[in-house]
Design a protein around this nucleic acid. Sequence first.
DNA 1: TTGAAAGCGCTACCAT
DNA 2: ATGGTAGCGCTTTCAA
Lengths: 329, 329
Amino acid sequence: MAKLAKVSPITVSRALRKPDAVSPELRQRIDAAVHKLAYVPNLAASRLASSRSHSVGVIVPTLYNVIFAEYLRALHEVFLNSGFQVVVVNSRYSQREEEQAIRTLLGQRVEAIIIVGVDHTPMSRHLLTQSKIPVIETFELADNPIHINIGLSQAKAGRDATQFLIDLGHRKIGFVVGQQDIRAAARLSGYKEAMEKAGPEYQPMVTSIPQHSSIALGSTLLVSLVNHNEIPEALFCNDDNLAMGAIMKCREIGIKVPQDISILGFHDLEFAASASPSLSTVSTRLYEIGKLAAEAAVNELSGKRLDVSTQIDVGYEIFARQSTGKNKR
Amino acid sequence: MAKLAKVSPITVSRALRKPDAVSPELRQRIDAAVHKLAYVPNLAASRLASSRSHSVGVIVPTLYNVIFAEYLRALHEVFLNSGFQVVVVNSRYSQREEEQAIRTLLGQRVEAIIIVGVDHTPMSRHLLTQSKIPVIETFELADNPIHINIGLSQAKAGRDATQFLIDLGHRKIGFVVGQQDIRAAARLSGYKEAMEKAGPEYQPMVTSIPQHSSIALGSTLLVSLVNHNEIPEALFCNDDNLAMGAIMKCREIGIKVPQDISILGFHDLEFAASASPSLSTVSTRLYEIGKLAAEAAVNELSGKRLDVSTQIDVGYEIFARQSTGKNKR
DNA sequence: TTGAAAGCGCTACCAT
DNA sequence: ATGGTAGCGCTTTCAA
């Protein structure tokens, strides 16, 4: 490469990184050679020599549904604008794979890690703590954050969501979930707490099929509910995908929403507001979490270490739309 | 690190990569030091020295909806099982960002690239061609594949889908699309071709809002259709997200599907079969494309270069479900 | 503005 | 089974 352009390697390096520092003639010779050879600098060598990777790592539990879409969008927007490449790794809801992902990302010397959740294997925690890079844990609130933590109390959200259904006059309230990740378990515990507090006639009913969440799974879950139990007066679904599927299955088999059954989702995914009936749900501010997380990372990296708290509770909000209503039974 | 365990660096390297090649005592000393320091080998150095990255690059146009979910799932399954790390990069439907993604991935010396689509900037093509690694272009059929190509004719699928609606007796058939990527344009051209061939009373009606596809956008598009035109007898939606949104909006405003309007989607996404009414759509075998692509890459990399064609047409299939029916108007 | 020398942290190769 | 040597392809530092 350097030979083809008849310059020294260091000049090539400079021409590629700061073209202004090189004379026009040389730059042109180099550009020609670069193009001719389809030369792409070896990032491994570059990273090794400069000990900068210009990349950040993002770990999400799934790429197979739309739950983290807005979150990822926010992360991409902020990081790309700040000159960082975003490496997305999918832990597939497995702490083992999450630990593997952390190793991979640290091995790549990403300059920050944004990770969903606050529960990790002891080894993961250890790796993250020792890594000396900014670590942003998101979506939940940690008792003991590794570093920066931006999220909301999933248990509290679950409790309030359940109370919202109780306040509508419902007693038989079911909880519906696919594979039970940690945040689902927290919401479930909030649900149980609210039910217990409401009185003995509020019996928890949990329906679960351990598969990754999807609209189709929501339909399947509703069918299994219909087959096995009496139909509850209200359903608290672990996410909007399940809620949407449940609504559609209700429609198909003639159960009216919300007259016969109230259905409440979680996350306020893109389709919730435009569904028919529109979906009542708990907004978790997915975009905002991503934006704050990325900004926190960028701030840390620029050394600006702002005076903001290391833990941010973004809260949540219950949107009462058409899929829930007062108990009429 | 090596000093802490009092062994040579090369022994550390061996202990980490093939523990069996090292005596138990040393291995133990090394493991202890590794853990104590939370040591993670620098992949940049490893890659540089070994010129192996053990990773493959995947470029998709979006991570913000569910279209590529099954495809990604298949890729992950095959590659992880074969010992490759999967690096997913999002080109956000931009050829410029796609070229950037290619540079990044080649810079990382990924061992193969799986990329959605067959249209790239000349520079992208050049980089890919010169890279000497397996390149798998997916979803479309190329006249001139860079290397391996697994997909289907989007134009033909669009034509047949339109013909399917024509055969149901519909004349006023609309085409609905969000942001117009290349595959959407191909399907649109197929639609126009079928309409033209059907006769002069078949006037193409295209409704488009250049935003990324979502169920919500489908609702919005249907509203704009209602506001601006007479309502068509049938709607060919560029993907199931839009179709789903359109169906829900129809329901909301009292248009009966399929009695008043037939709605056809594309891709057979996870929710299509369980929607209510269930969604007629064109299955594009998302999982199969991903699986074949990953297997082709793994084969190439293992030198087994099988005797299979370098281009595979996986075809497509029209699923006539409940959202389409004979024209009753 | 350009280049020479040194070294980033690993692994391949060859010894022992 | 273990280690010494060299070198991967860049960038940093210092000189010219």
